[in-house]
Nucleic acid binder design. Structure first.
Lengths: 338, 338
DNA sequence: CTGAAAGCGCTTACAG
DNA sequence: CTGAAAGCGCTTACAG
């Protein structure tokens, strides 16, 4: 099961075995054959740990996401996995649940794994959480999010544009009173989308905006979010003056929960209130009121993140880059009355 | 960054450092303090590769699923991750896409990682794919699926019971002509559900059953499945004699796709046809026709799989166990007319 | 193109 | 409770 056994069987040195099996270094055809035959014969199975220890670097990249249960996150993760596999790299996926302590734990784990690089949707926009990675010399790309200071490469949706698309449509449908349904506003998507909404609302006479979100850490887990966010948002919004007529939801799960609560309150969509959101989801087209959303090109986001990461690995000193990916507006019925 | 540096700073041996930091072996309080202080001071970060190489076993377990983009799969994976983390184990998640070659590749990868155990939803029910794991001495639990011969521990839904619940309801609603919407029938859930449907249909006079599935390997990826399965199933079913009035779908994505196609064909649900399925999904309650399903307790399935795996690790020779978890019937509107 | 040899950072009998 | 020393399975300058 080790190079030594193969070396003996093939009557070569372990160095030669390594050169053949790792694909690095020139070996004569004749010896190569013998090594390959011996490896086959012994049904040799390598030790990634030995290789990693010796090279001080694993053939693995890390991926820290908020929660892979979210459909768009799962889609990005699949895309990252495929792109990593194409390059011969394994992928280590971790869920932070927007929890800084968990994020720190997983960052430490991945450093101890000596991953060749890390793609992360950081729980905050502060660089400090990522500092240990820099000290460990591990390249980082942020996905779906970015940092306040551009000290890493980033790939994310053009949130400003996406929000604009949604708001334009709602304004065109006559809406003036908005509710922003967000989770933590410490992370990029919610913060950027909320900021854009604020700016737009400010520019429209008599328009209002309330923030109907959850406290940090309250939206842990899809099923929990599904249960809690709708009732919380609905209670807040229905007691506001003026009451919002348009709900803009930061993701598909929150949207589903909010819509269910509004319907339960007896409100009709879109006659009484509009409900739109970011992220498409299978089934949104089949809802009793089909859901208008801006969709993220999740596959492309994942692919670009991997591409950027490997470019960074290849040239560690190149200037940092931020790629903003354009959203797709999917007009269905939930955006409101004329 | 290594034990040697800590050992020097704390004026102890590397053996003592190891005993303190790995938590194994008795060390005097005084020395323990010194080691901990030195590790802190040097902001020490361990090498999992070194530990794994030395112990010939990683503090990691593997999880091979069909496709984590499926909502119920993601939910199980999260549950497995949490249960593994509780025991101090990292988790390595791989997607096989029901592809035997990919599955083999990932099994090899996890063997080379020297994982302490593997939880897998195998792409077939044959034991042979798992044989390399036995040779490598890696304990295995199958999740959501089982093998033809009970040579491993298994945790899965009670598919017979689940199918019975769905079929009883449809029969009560007057349906006699059924379409089974399945993916590959090589894997457990589809096979067991289909078999149960066959048996039930056989026992009801004049009842018919058609299999409206996809060829093996055709259902790769959620978005692809979503696009292709509905049209394929609809085309087949609408040309059948007699035409099915009830569609039983093996998972939430297929159900969504089939429902969309049927509606597009002008059929009303449930007045013209009933559509029910396995696996609940966020939003099913908000569909224009809310969807009747049997839900899987995905969290429990994941938790039980980890529990079984660690019991197997602790006692490798105990008899194999298969846990059948009961389904939950969620009656909504799509199950049909009276 | 080839091999001898050192060494990556841990753990673990073994002896005391 | 403690330390010296071997060794897990690879890779990689180095010398030829």
């Amino acid at each position: 099961m080790t190079y030594l056994e193969i070396a003996r069987m093939a009557d070569v040195s372990t160095a030669t075995v390594s050169r053949v099996l790792s694909g690095a270094g020139a070996v004569s055809d004749e010896r190569r054959e013998r090594v390959l035959a011996a490896a086959q014969e012994l049904s040799y199975r390598g030790s990634r740990a030995a290789r990693t220890l010796r090279r001080q670097k694993a053939d693995t990249i890390g991926l820290i996401v908020s929660d892979i249960e979210y459909p768009s996150v799962a889609s990005m993760a699949r895309s990252v996995e495929n792109a990593a596999a194409e390059r011969g790299f394994a992928l280590n996926i971790c869920n932070s649940d927007e929890d800084l302590a968990k994020e720190r734990k997983y960052i430490n784990l991945l450093i101890e794994e000596r991953v060749a690089g890390l793609i992360i949707s950081p729980a905050t926009e502060s660089y400090s959480a990522l500092e240990p990675l820099e000290r460990a010399g591990i390249p980082v790309v942020t996905l779906d999010r970015r940092l306040q200071d551009a000290r890493v490469d980033s790939v994310l949706l053009d949130n400003q544009k996406a929000t604009q698309l949604l708001m334009d449509d709602l304004l065109r449908h006559g809406h003036r009173h908005f509710a922003a349904v967000v989770g933590t506003t410490v992370a990029t998507p919610s913060r950027e989308r909320l900021e854009t909404m604020r700016a737009i609302v400010k520019s429209v006479p008599d328009a209002t905006l309330i923030i109907a979100g959850s406290k940090l850490g309250e939206t842990i887990g899809v099923s929990h979010t599904l249960e809690t966010i709708g009732p919380a948002v609905t209670a807040l919004a229905l007691s506001a003056h003026p009451q919002p007529t348009a709900y803009v939801c930061v993701n598909a799960i929150m949207l589903t929960s909010v819509m269910a609560s509004l319907i339960q309150e007896g409100l009709r969509i879109p006659q009484d209130v509009a409900v739109v959101g970011f992220d498409d989801m299978p089934g949104f087209a089949l809802f009793q009121t089909p859901v208008t959303v801006v969709a993220q090109p999740t596959q492309e986001l994942g692919r670009l993140a991997v591409q950027l990461l490997f470019e960074r690995i290849a040239s560690p000193t190149r200037p940092h880059e931020t790629i903003l990916v354009p959203p797709t507006f999917v007009a269905r019925a939930s955006c409101g009355h004329e």
